[in-house]
Nucleic acid binder design. Structure first.
Length: 402
RNA sequence: GCCCCCAUCGUCUAGUGGCCUAGGACACCACCCUUUCAAGGUGGCGGCACGGGUUCGAAUCCCGUUGGGGGUGCCA
């Protein structure tokens, strides 16, 4: 590495001081001895042989007797019996330093005072601490935080799991929401319980955070909860900021003004920005192209006897509407007027929620989506009527087959 | 094999000996509200891994068991 000279110099100092010694055993020979002795690892064979540096010989650290106590900010004192730590290699047979040594030397040189990392590094910490001490340096403050695990309770891995922050951003997860969620793993924002919410801004969290308060057990990364946080953050975005971010998800050919008209109605129900196109696609179909109709939604919406007649009547009423009256308010009151002639069941009043179902499916193809009358206003009269006509034709067909 | 870490609702957690009949968040369920969905409101379901101690008293302290994870290279 770039700092190889410093690494070598440190190794040399360790050798000169007697904290390290050379050994001429090959890996195979080490293993053979271990097998013979019924132990694992290196047995300290060359400790007192006084070997000089030479090609092919490795420099090993002379692990002292006693125990090494790692004072960890998260876990307290963790004790390691030095007899369980073998005399590990510092310099390879080809003279190059191993990572462990390079790491310590680089950290010391950079003036690192706090080493905060995942708990998987805890078992290597006594070796590093011994190195810091043998080099005459005061050890940094350690803090080993728990790892994140998947549903199998295994450490998150790049191969198996979605761990790249960028991929969540690309999915439409807001950075603030991600940060907020991540902070709740292993730590609870103060006041969260009283507030009944774990949603908290970075400045407050940063001010309240203490490494000592982080808990010690691994946490499952729950995308559902992340999305719930994201939803809250989206809802609380300033309108213009939200619009710009949402519009960025749209295909280039979709009309931005048209989207701007419906976007506010989407804001409070959006889970992640990648869902934007799929929620409003029915507004951007080329002329003459009808939305694909979801079978389940269709089945539900057309099952009441009155569904067809009501939609037929609504179609006539909408076609009679004055041009200036093609607004959500007028579209709604027109629907209310038409539906007043129907009953859900004999003796049971028909409510708007039920009455609008077939129209929604006819126009959007689905049973869920942005508010209906606002959608119709944006869609316009021509497309609305033609989609209703198509639905009525479809219904007619299926009834004749029955 | 050896070493280290961990163990409270499905998940993330609060809890550091009495305030715990174990609190909150997310999810889930029900009801209310309602222009579907969402939001909001109300309520519900659901947990201290097990066994021994210590103590007047244990989720909390100690020991053990079990379970899970990680480390263990002349890799970085």
């Amino acid at each position: 590495s770039a700092n190889a000279d410093a690494h070598l110099a440190a190794a040399h100092r360790l050798y000169e001081s007697g904290a390290a010694y050379y050994c001429d055993l090959s890996p195979d020979e080490v293993q053979a001895r271990a097998k013979e002795l019924g132990i694992t690892g290196y047995d300290g064979y060359s400790r007192d042989r006084g070997l000089e540096p030479a090609p092919g010989r490795v420099l090993r650290f002379r692990v002292p007797d006693g125990e090494t106590v790692v004072d960890d900010a998260v876990r307290g004192e963790v004790r390691f019996d030095n007899s369980t730590i073998e005399d590990f290699v510092l310099l390879r047979g080809n003279g190059t330093p191993v990572f462990l040594l390079a790491n310590v030397v680089d950290d010391a040189e950079m003036g690192i005072t706090d080493v905060v990392r995942a708990e998987e590094h805890l078992p290597n910490t006594p070796k590093q601490q011994m190195l810091w001490e043998a080099l005459g340096l005061s050890t940094p403050r350690w803090g080993h935080v728990p790892v994140l695990v998947n549903e199998q309770r295994k450490k998150l891995s790049k191969r198996r799991d979605q761990v790249a922050l960028e991929s969540y951003r690309d999915d439409g997860i807001l950075a603030d929401a991600m940060v907020n969620y991540l902070m709740t793993l292993g730590w609870t924002p103060p006041g969260a319980e009283e507030a009944g919410s774990e949603i908290m801004g970075w400045p407050e969290m940063e001010a309240a955070f203490r490494l000592e308060d982080v808990n010690t057990s691994p946490a499952f990364f729950d995308v559902k909860k992340l999305v719930a946080f994201n939803k809250t953050y989206i809802r609380e975005m300033p309108a213009d900021e939200y619009l710009a971010r949402a519009a960025a998800e749209l295909p280039a050919e979709w009309d931005r003004d048209r989207f701007a008209a419906i976007a506010p109605h989407l804001q409070e129900r959006l889970e992640r920005f990648s869902d934007v196109p799929g929620s409003v696609d029915f507004l951007f179909l080329p002329d003459g192209v009808d939305p694909e109709i979801d079978d389940t939604s269709w089945g539900k919406a057309t099952s009441p006897e009155w569904a067809g007649p009501l939609l037929g009547q609504l179609r006539e009423a909408y076609s009679d509407l004055a041009d200036g009256a093609w607004t959500a308010d007028d579209l709604k009151s027109t629907m209310e007027r038409v539906m007043s002639g129907y009953e859900e069941k004999p003796g049971k009043e028909l409510k708007l929620g039920k009455a609008q179902a077939f129209c929604r499916v006819a126009v959007t193809g689905r049973s869920v989506g942005p508010p209906l009358f606002e959608s119709l206003e944006v869609l316009g009269r021509e497309a609305t009527l033609s989609r209703i006509d198509r639905a009525l034709t479809l219904l007619d067909h299926s009834e004749r087959q029955d």
